[in-house]
C-alpha cells in the first residue's frame, strides 16, 4: 500500500501539505524571525521585508511568525481532538458491534440525540458556561462530534462482524473480545484512517471557524481563524492579512482531505481487484 501511496500524485500533494504544516508546528520557535505576540504600533501594516518576511499586521506583529505559530494552534487542537474522538469512536463503535442487543440500541439512541444538536450550539453553550480556553474548545468539539465517529465505526464494525471469516474465527475458538481486537479493528482501520484524515481537516476548519466567531481562544492568539477575524477591519486596505491565514487554513484542510481521498481511492481500488 505504501508503494501505491507513493505513486499517487494526489496522496503525495496531500502528504507534502501535511508535512509542511507539521514541520511548521514542531519547529516554529526555530523558524520564526520574530516573537509573534510582540505588539509594535509604530510598525503596523509594514510591507514585507527581510525583518518581517510577510509584513506586519494591524498591531505591528510579524505576520509570518504568527502564521507559523498558528500551525501549532490548529494542529495542537485538531490532533488531540482526533485522538480523543478515535478512542471514544473505536471503543464504543466496536463494543456496539461486539455486544449488540440493548447496549447497541442505547448507544445508538444517545448518539442520535447528540447528532441532532448542531456543533455550534454545543460549543457556544460550553464556552459560555466554562469560559474560553483550549481545553474547553477541544472538549466542546469532542462532545459535539463523538457521536459521528461512533456511528461511523459502528457501521463498519457491524459490517465486518457479518462477514464469513468472523464465523470462521468463532469456529476456530475466538471469543468476541479476541474477534474485535484480532479481526475487526485491523480490518476497519483503513476506513477509519480515511475518515480520521478528513476529520482532521474538518476539526481544523471547526476550530478556525469558532476562533473567527471569537469562541474559544483568548484575544490576540496567533490562530488562523482568529487572525482572519481580526483582519476583517482592514479588508480593503490590506486584503493580504485575510489572504494569508485563509490560505493556511485552506492548504492544511486540503492536505488532509487530499490524502484521505487518495487513501480511499487506493483502498477501494485494491478491494475491487
Amino acid at each position: 500500500m505504501i508503494r501505491r501511496i507513493l505513486k499517487s500524485p494526489q496522496a503525495m500533494v496531500g502528504l507534502a501539505l501535511i508535512a509542511i504544516t507539521l514541520l511548521a508546528a514542531v519547529f516554529a520557535p526555530w523558524i520564526v524571525p520574530n516573537n509573534p505576540d510582540v505588539v509594535s504600533l509604530t510598525q503596523k501594516f509594514k510591507a514585507p521585508s527581510t525583518v518581517h518576511p510577510l509584513g506586519t499586521d494591524q498591531l505591528g506583529r510579524c505576520e509570518f511568525s504568527r502564521l507559523v505559530y498558528g500551525a501549532r494552534y490548529s494542529l495542537g487542537m485538531a490532533l488531540p481532538i482526533l485522538v480523543i474522538l478515535g478512542v471514544i469512536g473505536l471503543t464504543l463503535g466496536c463494543a456496539c458491534a461486539g455486544i449488540g442487543g440493548v447496549f447497541d440500541r442505547v448507544v445508538t439512541i444517545i448518539s442520535d440525540i447528540f447528532i441532532a444538536f448542531p456543533a455550534l450550539t454545543v460549543v457556544a453553550a460550553i464556552i459560555g458556561a466554562w469560559g474560553n480556553g483550549i481545553e474547553n474548545i477541544v472538549l466542546s468539539i469532542v462532545i459535539s462530534t463523538w457521536a459521528w465517529f461512533t456511528r461511523m465505526v459502528r457501521a463498519y464494525a457491524v459490517m465486518e462482524m457479518g462477514k464469513e471469516y468472523i464465523l470462521g474465527a468463532r469456529i476456530a475458538g475466538a471469543g468476541t473480545v479476541r474477534i474485535i481486537f484480532r479481526h475487526v479493528l485491523p480490518n476497519i482501520m483503513p476506513q477509519y484512517l480515511i475518515y480520521a484524515s478528513t476529520g482532521v481537516a474538518s476539526a481544523i476548519l471547526t476550530v478556525s471557524g469558532f476562533s473567527f466567531l471569537g469562541l474559544g481562544l483568548p484575544a490576540g492568539s496567533p490562530e488562523w481563524g482568529a487572525m482572519l477575524s481580526e483582519a476583517r477591519a482592514s479588508l480593503y486596505s490590506h486584503p493580504e492579512l485575510l489572504l494569508y491565514p485563509g490560505l493556511c487554513i485552506l492548504a492544511t484542510a486540503a492536505g488532509y482531505n487530499l490524502f484521505g481521498e487518495a487513501l480511499r481511492d487506493i483502498l477501494h481500488g485494491g478491494s475491487t481487484r
Partner: peptide, 15 residues
C-alpha cells in the same frame, strides 16, 4: 467440533 465453510476466500481473514 470444527467446520469448513463454503467459500474458502471469504472464510479466511484477508489480512
Amino acid at each position: 467440533l470444527q467446520m469448513v465453510l463454503q467459500d474458502g476466500k471469504s472464510a479466511l481473514d484477508p489480512r
